[in-house]
Amino acid sequence: MAMSQTRVAPKRGDEHDVEYAVSVRDVSKNYGDVEALKDLSLDFPRGQLTSILGPSGCGKTTLLKIIAGLLSPTSGEVEVNGKAVTGPGPDRAFVFQDFALLPWASVIRNVAFGLELRGVARSERESIAQKYIQNVGLGGFENSFPHELSGGMRQRVGLARALSVDAQVLLMDEPFSAVDEQTRRKFQEDLLSLVQQESRTFIFVTHSIEEAVYVSDQIAILLPRPSRVSEIIKPTGIRNKGTDDIRRDPEYLDIVDRIWASLRSYVE
């Protein structure tokens, strides 16, 4: 079994540092008296997909929003490409759990909205948006409105919007949790090929163990109250298998079982 497992020990100034697109160092976040995150450190390898997995209420989304710059940590810091995060930046794009599409805007305007906010001229942003609409398989729906699309198609719009701003880091907050099971499987397969095509870093929050093992290069397991990284699993052996073979690979099944064994005591 080619499975490596390491305790998290971020090495500052280490030669491997450049390989990390995002580094989270000793981040704590308190909401009043509640400690949501405590001294959490985690590195995200460049060009790979890292999942953040844990039981509900373990601060996964809080961590992702801190990386996005939408929330500021109580202490600690986040670095993206070596630069400290102080707020949202052009190097990161966000995919929302509930899609966050503008209901009054057509698909193409929604996809181009990130570029519109950056002041890109209309013809230019629409040609970029057009390209990513094709990429996510929504060709022909440019002028549809979100309410005319299925849940899965809406999230494809959200994904195209995040891709079109050309950020190196894609932050995905349980992007498939609001779509049905079959769409979800298709999404997971598409995500695998997307990670291969696009040389970007994906940070993916999920509560589904199977999903995490299926799509990730690296899985960070968060345990709650207060949240910390309990272990990091790299399912390297199954990464080069075809999309159809992963789910019946013994290594895939083993990892899923092991993660469940370590999480089960935290699930009420």
Partner: peptide, 15 residues
């Protein structure tokens, strides 16, 4: 206003 729409605006660098 739905909170996630405003958050989306901030995430995509809207003023």
């Amino acid at each position: 206003t739905p909170y996630t729409l405003k958050e989306m605006g901030r995430a995509f660098l809207g003023t």
